[in-house]
Design a protein around this nucleic acid. Structure first.
Lengths: 220, 220
DNA sequence: GGAACTTCTTGATATGTGGTAAGAATCAGG
DNA sequence: CCTGATTCTTACCACATATCAAGAAGTTCC
């Protein structure tokens, strides 16, 4: 991966040092220690029975109507969750690149059949979080607070998307997407972006053509 | 209200007794004692500085770009939250009838400018919940757990709506709405339901006409 | 390196929902 | 109870996006 290449080039000592440290611990550990004030000890304790899982592109991790018994923290790679409607069409609910969480929170929390499918768009490494992890970790106030924050972030994302869907045109939604997720724009096939935006791939292609005609350049 | 009328009719002693108790305490107290395992003492403590607020139909409680510093628990009445797009059109995000919560959770939690407006559709009585209330109440594990549950419910509602918007036609969304919220269907003006569904009032009128033509009867 | 598949584009046409406008029905307030 | 305001309906036309179909470009894999 990119990180390894960086190591082998000459860097100021302090910087390469910190990168080594970062590689030495798991992405999840680094993430949690940074976002919360839990100690290394506490981290070891709550994660002692956890496993990371390598999944290759296209693997399915959750199907509609199954109970979601694991939430994933993406250490590397890219996942998506999506529904399939009665006409057999997919509708992407969420993308989850590095350092994002993915899972059907309702299914996980309420033990209900899941509304959606989850699979991988790229080869990925996941930290697999089960109910026991959340039960234990939530006893630590710092984690619990952070978890509440994650839930609020999720609500925000959903609200913004809902509002875009009812208030904005396909073109506006696309422009919003590439501004909000510039890296996803490059990593994700166009038809998936279309699905996320709630339009067909053909329509997105036309939107892009029209933007090109008007000489639109992203990030300029 | 309906409850008072019931009292004056003859009921088995135990039932009328419980109704009197219920009327004697605030709706919010009854709700919390029922949904959580907090004690009366704890309830008194966390609510000692709270006020209830009577608001008449049409009053605005939050405007776009303001910081949402209060979350409301609806004791009676009906509220809505909505955005206004660049063309000046309203898009209803949520209805909040009796025993629902309403507020901009992100604005409240992250201290950000709110995305939406909140006003009353009917004369209402609200329990006004401020940050201090949540800070104190969340120290009680039973409340904190329940609050997490409320957040998950909110996420579920948003996800289902998002999915309906991208996966279902206007007619399907309307049928889903009247099944999911039969009482709202009667209390809320049709143009607001249209707004909630993401269509124009004219379109909803046509959807209903078409359903009538096909002899559709709700709840049959 | 070529075959098979997937993705993206483009054109022609269809469909669902929107916009405008007008009238009917219903509601609210003095 | 009457008057004005709001809500709902209907008709006609417009427009955004969907659908279908075909071909081009790009990717994957043996």
């Amino acid at each position: 991966m990119a990180g390894n290449t960086v190591i082998s080039t000459k860097l100021p000592v302090s910087k390469s040092f910190s990168i080594i440290i970062l590689l030495a611990m798991s992405v999840f550990k680094n993430y949690l220690l940074q976002k919360t004030s839990i100690t290394e000890n506490e981290y070891s304790k709550i994660t002692e029975n956890l496993i990371t899982r390598k999944v290759s592109k296209g693997e399915m991790l959750l199907r509609q109507d199954e109970i979601c018994s694991e939430v994933y923290f993406v250490e590397s790679g890219l996942l998506r969750s999506y529904t399939i409607d009665h006409a057999g069409k997919e509708h992407i609910m969420q993308f989850a690149p590095d350092e994002w969480w993915i899972g059907d929170r309702n299914s996980f929390y309420f033990n209900e059949p899941s509304l959606f499918f989850i699979d991988t768009i790229e080869d990925s490494e996941l930290m697999v979080l089960n109910r026991k992890f959340f039960d234990t970790a939530n006893l630590i106030p710092s984690f619990s607070d952070f978890h509440t924050k994650v839930l609020h972030n999720h609500i925000r994302m959903l609200q913004i998307r809902l509002n875009m869907l009812v208030a904005a045109s396909a073109e506006e939604r696309y422009l919003d997407f590439i501004e909000r997720y510039p890296n996803l724009t490059l990593r994700v096939p166009q038809w998936m972006i279309a699905s996320y935006l709630g339009i067909t791939p053909e329509s997105l292609s036309r939107v892009r053509k029209e933007l090109a005609r008007r000489n639109f350049r992203p990030h300029s």
